[in-house]
Structure formats: C-alpha cells, structure tokens
C-alpha cells in the first residue's frame, strides 16, 4: 500500500547508457599534438593523471597516442606531472 503513496517530484533518473565513442575515430583525428595542452587536458583528471579508456571511451590505438603525447607535454612543462584542481 505504501508504494502507491510514494510519488517522486522528479522522474527517477534511470541512467540511460550513453554509448561512448572514440572521438578520434569519429572526428577522424589522426595525430595527437603534444604541444597543445588545452586539448590534452580533456584526457587528464584534476590531479593531472591520464584518464583510463573506460571513462574517455577512446580506442586503444589512440589512447596510446594520447598517453605518449601527454608524457611529452609533461617533459616540456606544458602539463604538470602532479597537481591539484588543475581544471
């Protein structure tokens, strides 16, 4: 009985599975530039660590390119090795 009385103000957000796609395949990007920190920041979390594929959804081939580009950017001090609240 109690179930009927429960009415939610907002509809229960059933997390619709938003299908992840590899942005490199979709926008046909073939080269990840290590000199462009703004673009690379999308693949880093707040501490400046590289996000795993399961979160960004990139394919393996481009995840390796991104990882290498981020490491080169860190070498040249475009990106910090470790920081807090970078974004």
């Amino acid at each position: 009985m109690a179930d009927k009385d429960i009415r939610y103000l907002t509809p229960v957000a059933v997390d619709t599975a938003k299908s992840k796609y590899c942005r490199f395949k979709k926008h046909n990007i073939r080269y990840v530039d290590y000199k462009d920190p703004e673009f690379l920041k999308q693949f880093l979390n707040e501490q400046g660590k590289i996000l795993p594929r399961r979160l960004t959804g990139t394919s393996l081939k481009y995840q390796r390119k991104v990882a290498k580009a981020v490491k080169r950017a860190r070498h040249l001090a475009f990106l910090p090795y470790v920081t807090d609240l970078m974004k």
Binding site: R30, Y31, D33, Y34, R72, H75, L76
Partner: peptide, 12 residues
Amino acid sequence: LTFHLDKFAVAY
C-alpha cells in the same frame, strides 16, 4: 625534445 614527424604529424 626532438620529435620524428610521421606523415600525419607533417600534415597537422
């Protein structure tokens, strides 16, 4: 840092 450009990098 010296970096070897492949054909996509050159196009970029």
